[in-house]
């Protein structure tokens, strides 16, 4: 399956046949066509015993051009959840503004009666809301071309990690990855957390190291990725977001044997 954001939401070749390129031979602009323009690549997320780790690199691509190299694709919500955005960057920025508004409304209506109360939206509530928004937009044939991960804690204080995409499809899993990450990173992360039961055995360090390793693998093999990335850890103590992580200990030794990497001698 084609995992580039440009391919999301398109008819699958194996189901509908290849796209007939003869239709493209037109002089007029194709009016109702929609596709992402500036895009972000994979987002990774993984649960551990006390919370969730989530990461995404800082690149926004314009097709194959690495256009913006300092775009932060993780955003915190209500100091208790993190949303990671893949796909169209302008739609991400729209959602970001929308979430800021929502957080302000929530802060107004929630805490006036009891000072220590926390009836603010938790990660599960936030994910439900975002997936409703995405589904609503796809039903209007005006999709927000994103694929999101929402990380945080649920109402019981347990780690929560869920995905939502431009069609409104939702799912949860101990580890999740969007875009290219679903093929390259997800198998590595599943090695550490194959099922919900194994989450309780995984420490914060293990989870962070695994996600960092996956970011490295993605940088090696995903041409639309970057070695500078953001990483957030959500626990009951709040969100620790670091937006200027660098990939360390890269080894390009494997590249010698692969045609297309670096200088070719033969």
């Amino acid at each position: 399956m084609d995992h580039r954001p440009q391919a999301w939401g398109r008819p699958r070749d194996d189901v509908y046949g290849a796209y007939d390129a003869s239709y493209m031979q037109t002089n007029q602009p194709n009016q109702h066509t929609q596709s992402p323009i500036v895009t972000g690549t994979s987002v990774l997320g993984m649960k551990f015993k006390d919370g969730v780790v989530i990461a995404a690199d800082n690149l926004a691509s314009y097709g194959s051009l690495a256009r913006f190299t300092d775009v932060k694709r993780l955003r915190t919500f209500a100091e208790s959840s993190v949303v990671g955005f893949g796909g169209d960057v302008s739609d991400m920025q729209y959602l970001d503004r929308h979430l800021t508004e929502l957080a302000i409304d929530e802060a107004y209506t929630s805490t006036t009666t009891t000072p220590n109360a926390q009836p603010t939206l938790n990660a599960r509530n936030l994910h439900k809301y975002l997936s409703k928004l995405l589904y609503h937009r796809r039903s209007k044939f005006d999709p927000l071309w994103n694929s999101l991960l929402v990380a945080g804690l649920d109402e019981a204080g347990a780690p929560f990690l869920a995905a939502a995409d431009l069609l409104g499809t939702t799912f949860t899993s101990p580890s999740l990855a969007t875009g290219f990450g679903s093929m390259l990173a997800q198998p590595i992360m599943r090695g550490l957390v194959p099922d919900e039961a194994s989450v309780a055995q995984v420490t914060r360090e293990q989870a962070i190291n695994c996600v960092r390793e996956c970011m490295k693998v993605l940088f090696y093999r995903d041409a639309r990725s970057l070695d500078s990335y953001s990483l957030a850890v959500v626990t009951k103590d709040g969100v620790e977001l670091s937006e200027n992580e660098k990939l360390e200990n890269q080894s390009w030794a494997f590249a010698d044997r692969i045609k297309g990497y670096g200088t070719q001698t033969v």
Partner: peptide
């Protein structure tokens, strides 16, 4: 034999709102 000109009538390449899970 690829047609060199657009076929008559409007053609849209629309967003596909469905997938099979």
């Amino acid at each position: 034999e690829v047609p060199q000109h657009a076929v008559d009538g409007l053609r849209e390449h629309r967003f596909n709102p469905y997938t099979d899970n």
